[in-house]
Computed example of a mutant assay.
Amino acid sequence: MVDLDNVDRGILHELQLDARNRTAQQIADKVDVSASTVRNRIAQLESAGVIEGYHPKIDYETANLPLQLLFVCTAPPTERAAMVEQILDVRGVVDVRETLTGRQNLYVEAVGTGTADTGRITDALHEIGLSIESSEILRQRRVQPFDHFFYTDPYDGEQGAREE
């Protein structure tokens, strides 16, 4: 666990909005510090593991992978971690999410070009030992950056960084 201050929170928020096109100076202007402070803080956040990487958002349909699938699976809790590594090796799998509670404890997102990919991925998940509870064809996925590094205090109505 890393204690984040207001500067760290502001930097993280700005990076989530558009890390590729935000310069250190632009971020510095938003969080009211120098560009060198921003660069140093980003380096510290990376080495502490708070920032794990910078990933492109890919439009799979435009990339000729029009089929997006979501598999809701059950894995034995004691074997789940090992299974996740195997799942990530399946061609087409782009995301695996583990849940802590409930029978359905793995959500596997995959992409492909058609029904042959659906069958291949389904077979691979069964071979790993997963029970597929349901599979859905995804139409669209929307994500947004976490924007609660700053909050409005319901008691005074002013916006500011959360003090912990």
Results as ranks from 00 to 15, higher is better:
118 T>Q: 12
76 P>M: 13
16 Q>P: 00
127 E>K: 15
48 A>D: 15
87 I>K: 07
103 R>F: 07
71 F>T: 00
92 G>K: 01
2 V>D: 04
56 P>W: 06
160 G>M: 05
119 G>K: 12
108 V>S: 06
40 N>L: 10
53 G>R: 10
130 L>N: 01
101 T>I: 11
31 V>E: 03
78 T>M: 12
32 D>N: 14
147 D>E: 14
98 E>R: 15
132 I>D: 11
152 T>M: 12
77 P>M: 01
115 T>R: 15
50 V>L: 03
51 I>R: 04
123 D>W: 01
29 D>S: 13
87 I>W: 01
126 H>K: 14
28 A>S: 06
1 M>I: 09
46 E>C: 00
104 Q>T: 06
67 L>C: 03
122 T>L: 07
7 V>G: 05
57 K>I: 13
157 G>W: 04
135 S>L: 13
18 D>K: 07
74 T>S: 12
161 A>P: 09
83 M>K: 09
6 N>G: 11
35 A>M: 08
34 S>Q: 12
126 H>T: 08
138 L>T: 15
111 V>Y: 05
160 G>P: 08
79 E>A: 14
151 Y>Q: 15
100 L>T: 15
59 D>P: 06
127 E>P: 03
91 R>T: 11
96 V>S: 11
95 D>P: 01
20 R>G: 13
97 R>N: 11
99 T>G: 09
5 D>I: 07
139 R>A: 14
98 E>D: 09
37 T>I: 10
152 T>K: 14
164 E>D: 13
14 E>L: 07
148 H>R: 09
128 I>H: 04
157 G>H: 09
104 Q>M: 08
49 G>P: 00
38 V>F: 04
113 T>R: 15
49 G>V: 06
101 T>V: 04
125 L>K: 01
133 E>N: 10
156 D>M: 07
30 K>L: 11
33 V>Q: 02
50 V>R: 03
75 A>T: 06
66 P>R: 07
130 L>K: 01
104 Q>H: 09
7 V>E: 11
7 V>A: 13
158 E>D: 13
122 T>M: 08
84 V>F: 07
138 L>K: 15
27 I>V: 11
118 T>F: 11
23 T>W: 03
93 V>L: 02
10 G>E: 05
155 Y>E: 15
55 H>D: 13
78 T>F: 05
107 Y>Q: 13
97 R>C: 07
85 E>A: 11
100 L>V: 08
40 N>T: 07
157 G>A: 12
139 R>F: 09
162 R>T: 11
51 I>F: 01
142 R>E: 13
6 N>T: 06
89 D>G: 08
127 E>I: 00
150 F>V: 12
12 L>M: 04
133 E>L: 08
44 Q>R: 15
44 Q>G: 06
98 E>G: 06
126 H>Y: 10
2 V>L: 09
101 T>E: 10
41 R>I: 06
19 A>R: 05
19 A>Q: 02
85 E>L: 08
75 A>V: 02
138 L>Y: 04
10 G>D: 04
129 G>L: 11
33 V>G: 02
84 V>W: 07
56 P>R: 07
53 G>T: 00
91 R>I: 04
150 F>D: 14
43 A>N: 15
96 V>W: 09
7 V>D: 10
19 A>F: 06
153 D>R: 14
133 E>M: 07
103 R>N: 08
99 T>P: 03
147 D>W: 09
50 V>C: 00
